[in-house]
């Protein structure tokens, strides 16, 4: 019981430190101007190569289609894992 309280106190202290770090870095992020970022300019200027006016779709399926392929594979593997988990109902004795 006592050890649990001590570990919870340490966790709370760590949480407070994390709050400070995150808020400070967040305030720094907020003051950046991202309009001149070269990546943003590249996307806005060359979107016509994909033929779509929806920039999010263009990035998702043209510039970064490989990432989307990995995401589709993650979804597929997760569903396959869930279906495999439900397979062995007969020998449900885990312990």
């Amino acid at each position: 019981m006592k050890g649990k309280h001590r570990s919870k106190n340490i966790l709370t202290l760590g949480l407070l430190c994390l709050i400070a770090v995150l808020i400070i870095s967040g305030l720094r992020l907020e003051h950046q101007d991202k309009r001149d970022s070269p990546l943003h300019r590249y996307y806005v200027e060359t979107y016509e190569d994909a033929g779509s006016i929806n920039l999010v779709e263009t990035i998702l399926l043209n510039y970064r289609a490989y990432d989307t392929f990995g995401e589709v594979m993650v979804l597929y593997i997760a569903i396959a894992g869930i279906l495999i988990l439900g397979e062995d109902k007969k020998k449900g004795d885990v312990t």
């Binding site: 190569d49 994909a50 033929g51 779709e57 399926l61 043209n62 289609a65 989307t68």
Partner: peptide, 21 residues
């Protein structure tokens, strides 16, 4: 290259990928 746009300046490939996804 992997995922090259086959028809340049045309949204056909995006539509195909949309339907597949």
């Amino acid at each position: 290259a992997y995922f090259t746009n086959i028809w340049p300046r045309s949204p056909a490939m995006l539509v195909i990928l949309d339907v597949v996804v």
